[in-house]
Computed example of a mutant assay.
Amino acid sequence: MTDFRTSLRVARLADVDGITDLHTAARTAYYQAGGVTDAELTSPEALADRRASWARAVGSDDRTVLCAERDGEIVGILSMGPPYDADVDPAMAGQLYQIHVRPGLWGHGIGGRLHAAFVRFLREEALSVGVLEAWDRNSRAQGFYARHGWRPDGRDRPGPGGGRYVRMRLAVGALERP
């Protein structure tokens, strides 16, 4: 589904509270579905940590944060930049740190627009590989990324609730150009 009412723009520091609220709502939905308790997700300390992390990301020189906006409201976010892991060559790969869409708007094409922006970022930076981590209990995210050509690469690390973060790769050269 194509969403013509949603526009993408670079995030500003003034967006950090809205970004944090959206991120909190999205992560609460998928982590609760995977068995993580509400107390672990919505504590004031966790919220303050998320806000500080987003402020750093928006103000960072090596990250890009985009907001998907509809009718003046932030309805999705994308964070991307260089890879975290030392075994991933930053001359070849970029990392999709996070895509979040406001619950209730899932399946409306917003995540697809944000994903397409990440692929454009890779191409503009002449990078041939994308990497990301997805929580193994988030079947919605796993399915979304698989539909967009991502595949697990065999690496994982501990995640919340006894789950794992699975690293996935996307070979950009294999994708059709728009």
Score class of each variant (00 low, 15 high):
residue 37 T to C: 06
residue 29 A to S: 03
residue 4 F to A: 09
residue 12 R to D: 05
residue 81 G to F: 08
residue 140 R to W: 08
residue 80 M to N: 02
residue 72 G to Y: 14
residue 121 F to P: 04
residue 40 E to G: 03
residue 139 S to Q: 15
residue 116 A to S: 09
residue 156 D to R: 08
residue 174 A to T: 08
residue 15 D to K: 12
residue 137 R to T: 06
residue 3 D to K: 11
residue 37 T to N: 10
residue 170 L to I: 05
residue 30 Y to L: 04
residue 119 V to G: 07
residue 73 E to D: 10
residue 129 V to E: 01
residue 127 L to H: 06
residue 23 H to M: 06
residue 50 R to P: 06
residue 1 M to T: 01
residue 26 A to C: 05
residue 124 E to Y: 10
residue 64 T to L: 14
residue 10 V to K: 01
residue 79 S to D: 15
residue 4 F to S: 12
residue 46 A to T: 07
residue 121 F to K: 00
residue 28 T to Y: 03
residue 77 I to P: 07
residue 46 A to C: 00
residue 16 V to E: 02
residue 133 E to N: 12
residue 44 P to T: 03
residue 29 A to D: 04
residue 23 H to W: 03
residue 131 V to A: 06
residue 134 A to Y: 02
residue 31 Y to A: 00
residue 108 H to C: 10
residue 135 W to Y: 08
residue 175 L to D: 10
residue 143 G to V: 00
residue 84 Y to M: 07
residue 144 F to W: 11
residue 98 Q to P: 01
residue 131 V to T: 14
residue 95 Q to C: 13
residue 104 G to E: 11
residue 166 V to A: 11
residue 120 R to K: 02
residue 132 L to E: 01
residue 137 R to D: 05
residue 98 Q to C: 05
residue 61 D to L: 12
residue 115 H to N: 12
residue 111 G to H: 05
residue 111 G to K: 11
residue 61 D to M: 12
residue 105 L to H: 10
residue 59 G to V: 14
residue 91 A to L: 13
residue 149 G to E: 00
residue 159 G to L: 11
residue 103 P to I: 13
residue 18 G to F: 08
residue 4 F to W: 11
residue 156 D to S: 15
residue 123 R to T: 01
residue 164 R to K: 13
residue 168 M to I: 09
residue 73 E to V: 10
residue 134 A to W: 04
residue 91 A to F: 13
residue 164 R to I: 04
residue 121 F to W: 10
residue 56 R to A: 15
residue 86 A to S: 11
residue 37 T to A: 15
residue 132 L to H: 01
residue 132 L to D: 00
residue 135 W to N: 08
residue 32 Q to S: 03
residue 57 A to Y: 02
residue 110 I to H: 12
residue 89 D to Y: 14
residue 43 S to A: 11
residue 30 Y to W: 12
residue 1 M to W: 07
residue 149 G to T: 00
residue 39 A to G: 09
residue 131 V to D: 03
residue 123 R to W: 10
residue 103 P to H: 09
residue 155 R to V: 04
residue 101 V to A: 13
residue 88 V to N: 04
residue 47 L to G: 02
residue 106 W to C: 03
residue 96 L to V: 09
residue 54 W to Y: 15
residue 56 R to L: 07
residue 160 P to L: 12
residue 17 D to L: 07
residue 59 G to I: 09
residue 78 L to P: 08
residue 131 V to H: 02
residue 114 L to H: 03
residue 102 R to W: 08
residue 6 T to K: 02
residue 61 D to T: 14
residue 43 S to Q: 03
residue 1 M to V: 08
residue 163 G to N: 15
residue 35 G to H: 15
residue 66 L to W: 12
residue 54 W to G: 01
residue 84 Y to T: 15
residue 34 G to Y: 01
residue 124 E to R: 11
residue 33 A to F: 02
residue 87 D to S: 10
residue 122 L to F: 12
residue 175 L to Q: 15
residue 120 R to T: 07
residue 91 A to M: 13
residue 84 Y to F: 08
residue 23 H to P: 05
residue 14 A to F: 09
residue 49 D to F: 04
residue 96 L to S: 08
residue 178 P to K: 08
residue 74 I to F: 04
residue 142 Q to G: 08
residue 60 S to F: 14
residue 31 Y to F: 10
residue 98 Q to N: 07
residue 102 R to I: 07
residue 147 R to A: 15
residue 120 R to H: 09
residue 75 V to H: 00
residue 145 Y to K: 02
residue 25 A to N: 03
